[in-house]
Design a protein around this nucleic acid. Structure first.
Lengths: 331, 331
DNA sequence: CTGTTAGCGCTTTCAC
DNA sequence: GTGAAAGCGCTAACAG
């Protein structure tokens, strides 16, 4: 113990402890610091957490780190955490709501200072209810939480404008002269999917166009690939395809290419999210931009900052349509 | 406290505690479990860690989660951790060795059960020495560690066959009829870069070809982009370009395309790693495959499994050349 | 300003 | 088998 090395005991805690209004004579302060350095002493954060109550780990629950959407989000959360001197415990749900609930429980047991939930929001009320209950216990134990997605959970939320973005995208596409659309959607149980789909349909209606043809599948690269093949197999009169997210669009692009369908000459394609690779696909992907890293930072801020009044806060994130080369101008 | 709820006290610990040879009468066992359930009791892992010594968090230090290489690696580590009931604390170095050292220190303070280091290995001896020292302290405090990359650290290591893979790639490319090469390399301080460069040059020599033209830059997408532009600006007589990793290759591809250089018609291009997107680029990227997720799992296994004898283990990971469409067959 | 004294919640000998 | 008691290493009142 650095204590014995120095001379005093709990004084050490004051100088080595969390920066703050620690008043210690400079003489002793130096002695302690010196001793600590000599012994290579590092405070045991576990003990500190136990005694002091507040841990400096925050939990982040995502679907899959391998998906650029979540990787970017995680990057933002980690950046914000580092700025505050906190560390991030990441766990993946792989879209399994049960696993998400379990992870919240683990984080509670771990006494994480805050939990950020990203991307498994489903429409099943029973599941949502159980997750909410688990979160409630966590909060009751002094934890803070925030999530990104829809405001269905009892927590502050960063809510990307999925609906509005998709609607604006639809209108932009209509303005390019497209009249018939197909949507490669993820599983209908996913909130994001429903929002983007509804927004897109609404945008189409605004433009006086009929509802799109909709195909449901997995919300990932292979899902996009499979759906594009199905679209081709079933036949379509659409001139433009909207994939519910960019990774699906990337998969669709590959499938179309393999089948000899040229984008955008034969068929236009648009995605959603604006992950980094979407500007590097060929053709570059028209999409709806979400400031993923910023969202990550914001959601951690929300989780950590003192609650506002009674109601849960919802921070809307604007989504911006970006027209690139994958959508043909038919005019 | 579940204790009072039930009846006994430390008995609760025996039934709720870590699974094992806990002998408790089934009557009491049931009572305790019931009480725990009623109260929604969850053991405080922080306290357990303090008392019991062993935490169930493992640390993972990567360069940047946003880079698919590390995302995949992280995915593997997380999978392996989950299988063992452990959680993963991830931190990013953004290639700053100082930050890496700091993260090890933090993880030590956090009493992480194990640390996995991935991807900041540099050639600076002073830095490596300090990192080694920090690791040594961690280990002295009972921690375990393993890393992926070069075996320069006092730890078990998963070592991808960068040299061999690059050499085989060079020979394959030579077999396709290419005679003059350019390499878009990352910063020379990075171990990976040196290994891949050396391996590539060696493969060329094996084939009786001259050393390649080498350009150094950043080890990421934008680095690849910038380097490709520089290559074009400076002019080159190479018929094939080797980018030291896939994300650089993706950037290079975009730059070449923007400049009207067709791949592989005008110039061939190859990468390294085989990240998921490399099969979706246009043209699909010739590369050297590394089983990233497996590597992640293996490195955690290495870190956690009881040390073998005195020497540090080095687990070689084979790298497989994958010829796709981005490299032209000149024969 | 600085030393003493209780715990934080759990695991673990050590008796009964 | 099961209860009692002693810490794990640190922080936080509370006195000096």
């Amino acid at each position: 113990m650095a204590r014995l090395a120095g001379v005093s005991l709990a004084t050490a805690s004051r100088v080595l402890g969390p920066a703050g209004t620690r008043r210690v004579g400079s003489e002793l302060r130096h002695r302690v610091e010196k001793a600590a350095r000599q012994l290579g002493y590092t405070p045991n954060l576990v003990a500190r957490t136990l005694a002091h109550g507040a841990s400096d780990v925050v939990g982040l629950i995502v679907h899959d780190l391998t998906d650029p959407y979540f990787a970017m989000l995680a990057g933002g959360v980690m950046r914000a955490a580092e700025r505050r001197g906190l560390v991030v415990l990441i766990s993946a749900t792989r879209r399994d709501p049960e696993r998400e609930i379990a992870h919240v429980a683990t984080l509670r047991a771990q006494r994480a200072r805050a939990i950020v939930l990203a991307g498994t929001r489903v429409t099943d009320d029973r599941l949502t209810g159980r997750l909410a209950a688990e979160l409630e216990r966590y909060r009751a134990a002094g934890g803070r939480a925030a999530c990104v997605g829809r405001t269905v959970l009892p927590a502050d939320t960063v809510v990307p404008d999925n609906h509005g973005g998709a609607a604006r995208l639809a209108r932009s596409l209509a303005a390019l002269g497209h009249r018939r659309f197909a949507v490669l959607a993820g599983p209908p149980e996913l909130m994001v999917v429903r929002e983007r789909l509804a927004g897109f349909a609404e945008g189409l209606r605004d433009a006086g166009l009929p509802d799109p043809q909709v195909l449901y599948g997995d919300f990932d690269r292979d899902g996009g690939h499979a759906l594009a093949e199905r679209l081709l197999a079933e036949g379509t009169d659409a001139t433009c395809v909207f994939a519910a997210n960019d990774v699906m669009a990337v998969g669709a692009l590959a499938a179309l290419r393999a089948r000899g369908v040229s984008v955008p000459a034969d068929l236009s394609l648009a995605g959603f999210d604006d992950i980094p690779t979407s500007r590097d696909t060929v053709p570059a992907l028209t999409t709806v931009r979400l400031p993923l890293e910023d969202m990550g930072e914001r959601v951690l801020d929300l989780a950590l900052d003192p609650d506002s009044a009674g109601e849960w806060r919802a921070e809307r994130i604007p989504a911006e349509v970006i027209i690139r080369e994958s959508t043909r101008d038919l005019r």
